[in-house]
Amino acid sequence: MSERKLHPAVAGAQPMYRAENDPDAPLFEGAYKQRFDDILTRYPDKRAAILPVLAMCQELRGWISSETIERVAELLDLTPAYVLSITSFYTMFRPQPVGKYLIQVCTSIGCDLCGAENVVEKLLAATGTRTGEISEDGLYTVIEVECLGACGFATVVQVNERVYESVKTETVTRLLEELR
């Protein structure tokens, strides 16, 4: 993965879901070490760096393992339990691996009114999974999430770094094909 140098102001603000990730990728090396250092310069204390640093780890590895938690705790002078209290509070941190494409379907009121439940069903059927599972080919995990903040474009489906607006049951197949 080649990394261009990020401006420190945005070093901690990169999307944390990427199709290309490696659960065993080294953390805090090379460009990522640079980003870690840059993130620390943006806050008056180390604790404040925890969300961007965890996001960076997830961006690299696809999920947050116990080992990741322990590394982050050590680097930020926090206890592992504290880091766990954070990763379990914020729902975007995944406590287990997910498919290459994490498909998040908004089922909050705006999308619900426009048939989000049917979209979920269709996606689960098409990927042959139950909620949260990884499909057999390792490609997909479908989960329901609360409001993604694009209610006017229901149903909103977020796949890794992309947002698909106005998804209908009829367009689910095309969406999955596009990913392949």
């Binding site: 102001a9 945005v10 943006r42 806050y43 204390d45 180390k46 404040a48 760096a49 961007p52 914020y90």
Partner: peptide
């Protein structure tokens, strides 16, 4: 003026003013 983009990580309550401050400080929101 320095400006930093800080990302939330999935918590509606971080939108509450003081929840946001806790979240920005690296705490539960």
């Amino acid at each position: 003026l320095e400006l930093t983009v800080h990302l939330g990580a999935g918590a509606y309550i971080a939108g509450e003013e003081t929840g946001m401050l806790n979240s920005l400080e690296g705490r539960r929101a």
